[in-house]
Design a protein around this nucleic acid. Structure first.
Length: 120
RNA sequence: UCAGAGGGCCGGACGGUCGCCCGCCGCCGCUAAAGCUAUGACGUGGCUUGCCGCGCCGAAGCCUUGGCGAAGGCGGGAGGAAAGUCCGGGCUCCAAUAUGGCAGGAUGCCGGAUAACGUCCGGCCAAUGCAAAUUGAGGGAAAGUGCCACAGAAAGGAAACUACCUCCUGCAAGUUCACUGCGUGAAAAGGCAUGAGGAAAAGCUGAAAGGGUGCGGUAAGAGCGUACCGGGCCGAUGGUAACAAAGGCCGCAUGGUAAACCCCAUCCGGAGCAAGACCAAAUAGGGACAGUAUUGCGGGCCAUAUCGUGGCUGUCCGGGUUGGUUGCUAGAGACGGCGAGUAAUCGCCGCCCCAGAUGAAUGAUCGUCACUGCUUUGGCAGGACAGAACCCGGCUUACAGGCCCUCUGACUUU
């Protein structure tokens, strides 16, 4: 159980998003998750991205809120400390059922938490 | 009841679980500054030699104020268009954006409202509609210039052309009559051609053809005359005005286009909260003040008046970029009542505080009930347009579904 509060940090600068973009990523269902180890801290930090391809400002806001709830529900259990995450919305994120969206993100996070098989 | 016109309003509701942003409250912790003191340090005096008095310093102690952090409590938290960024203002800077002119731009019936507007309200005129109503860049075409495609004879000082009418001359054939013989003469009407004149009524066109129709008139015609319609000029009178208009005169004279140039009138400096101000960090040009020289430069351009700035010397210090703070939300403010006004709107009183984020909060999820559609009547789907970003007043555009009020026309009934 995770009774202790895990403080989720927030990515706010463009350079931080660009840093995570060069890390590992996994796309399942309606969500794409990028992850990269950040030696500068040992917390879990997260950012969200919804491009204009998703829709107008109202849909982009709603999609980012859903992804934020997904991250709050899952990262405490499946996130690795000292890593930065970026959740990217896809075209069907808005219409995806809530339980399916949770499953997608959970699978992606489990895959990412295992060490990579082929190390380059 | 059906069809239609105008205006106003709402933009699902309730609950469970888990969260976000801002403000306030009190508690705890940390921290900064000021103040107070001893069981403290120092100086000095007294004496019974380890106590007392005085002065001063000064906390890890007390107290006051401020800041930060975390558990908690309370309050608030997207729209009618928040949108497009199309107008108008407030606010800020641009070295002063002052006065006059030019250029450029915008607006354009009249009156009112307003901080202002290209907005709104009321009215006038024109067009459309049976009507309620709607629409209108709605000043000037006798200041000037330009343009009027295609078609058409002609697209603008009214003339040329076709066709029409009259007259002169010429031509050849025919008709009739006479003489007579295979021809001659005469006559009237007509044909063709040239010329002169009349007239602008007819000419397929075109968005538009220099008033229209009828009758008379005439060689043919013509406002040539006349009746009606249309038009122009003057205009009693009404209205603040746009404008309306009784009546009179004129046979009728200056086509359209100013979302073509232009003319007239009114208004307008530019850029925008990524404006601007402050703090911290770190690398090259640099900045401030004083003295000196007196000319150049500086609003889109010119002139006037001030104003700012540049060169050199001396002294003293820090700006682009990144991050943070501020600007930042109490305002042409919301609601209610009364009053003025046809209305837009304004005045007074009462009451309230109602988002301030910055990779950007204002929610995610589940259930119930309403709503809409389909349906085998059990249920199954769906929820429009759309997200504050300095703030107001408008305009424009988008919008599922629903509610209310007023008015018009037709039909039916009483």
């Amino acid at each position: 159980m995770t009774d202790h509060k895990i403080q989720l940090g927030r990515l706010t600068k463009r350079s931080e998003f660009l840093y995570v973009r060069d890390g590992r990523y996994r796309a399942i269902g309606a969500v794409v998750i990028q992850m990269r180890k950040n030696p500068g801290h040992d917390a879990i930090r997260v950012g969200f991205t919804a491009t204009k391809k998703i829709g107008n400002a109202v849909t982009r806001n709603r999609v980012k809120r859903r992804l934020r709830e997904v991250a709050r529900a899952l990262l405490a259990d499946y996130g690795l400390p000292g890593h930065d995450y970026v959740f990217i919305a896809r075209d069907n994120t808005n219409g995806r059922k809530w339980q399916d969206l949770l499953d997608d993100a959970q699978k992606a996070l489990i895959t990412l938490s295992k060490p990579p098989k082929t190390k380059t």
